[in-house]
Design a protein around this nucleic acid. Structure first.
Lengths: 119, 119
DNA sequence: CTATCAGCTGAAGTCGGCTTTAAGTCAAGT
DNA sequence: ACTTGACTTAAAGCCGACTTCAGCTGATAG
């Protein structure tokens, strides 16, 4: 797949994909002889993974470390720990969201009553 | 309460509190004769509210608008809509978090198996 | 009396995460 | 031949949300 197709598929610009590869957020993408990126299954999976993680707010730094360990095919323990660490962060964030949404619910309800009475 | 006490209480710097007031993220804080901020119940509630919203990622812009409507004691309908809008954004984010955490769970499990076999 | 905390404005600095620009080259498809 | 879309690096630009600084004054506590 060309970078254009991948960018279409995942709804992100080609620039972003190149940027991700450049900073090591995804491993180097295989190329055709002419140097043009030829995303295979593997690369697409990485893109999907990174997109998912980033959308949830996982830090780029952590992902870069993870990806680099994957390439060196080393640090399984460390890799697992990175994932656990990030999961904990996301769980914390989910909890924060939960309480905030509750708070909003409460306030919205209040406005609903207010608007009913007004009439 | 002085700004120092409030900053202590909510674990945010005095600078940030002043910044919040300056940009209208919290309504003007009452002052003593000498001009020193004297946070009352009301002001503290605002701080708590904004802190909560911000920690969940509600945009400053939306909060500023909300706060300004509160002060003018107007736009109840609009106020409610702001809250509903932001709630929807947070719910979307919560959903994103949920799927990402699931994905991490899956990967972590995989590492666990791997580490077991290794031994 | 001095240290500490408070106040002010306004601007500059920082950081993360892109996004764009410059200034090209290269190759496949019509 | 021409268009399209790919490629390169390095640097600059942008945005949001703080954070800090500069350069003061003024009040309170020990």
């Amino acid at each position: 797949m060309t970078i254009g197709e991948v960018s279409e598929k995942f709804q992100m610009t080609a620039d972003t994909l190149r940027y991700y590869e450049r900073i090591g957020l995804i491993p180097p993408v295989p190329r055709k002889k002419n140097g043009i990126r030829d995303f295979d299954e593997q690369s697409c999976k990485w893109v999907a993974f990174v997109k998912c993680m980033r959308s949830a707010g996982v830090q780029i730094e952590a992902l870069i470390e993870y990806v680099s360990l994957m390439q060196k095919d080393t640090g399984i323990e460390r890799r697992k720990n990175i994932l656990i660490e990030q999961r904990a962060r996301l769980q914390q964030q989910a909890e924060t969201l939960r309480t905030t949404i509750e708070r909003l619910d409460y306030k919205i309800e209040h406005y609903e009553e207010l608007l009913l009475k007004k009439h």
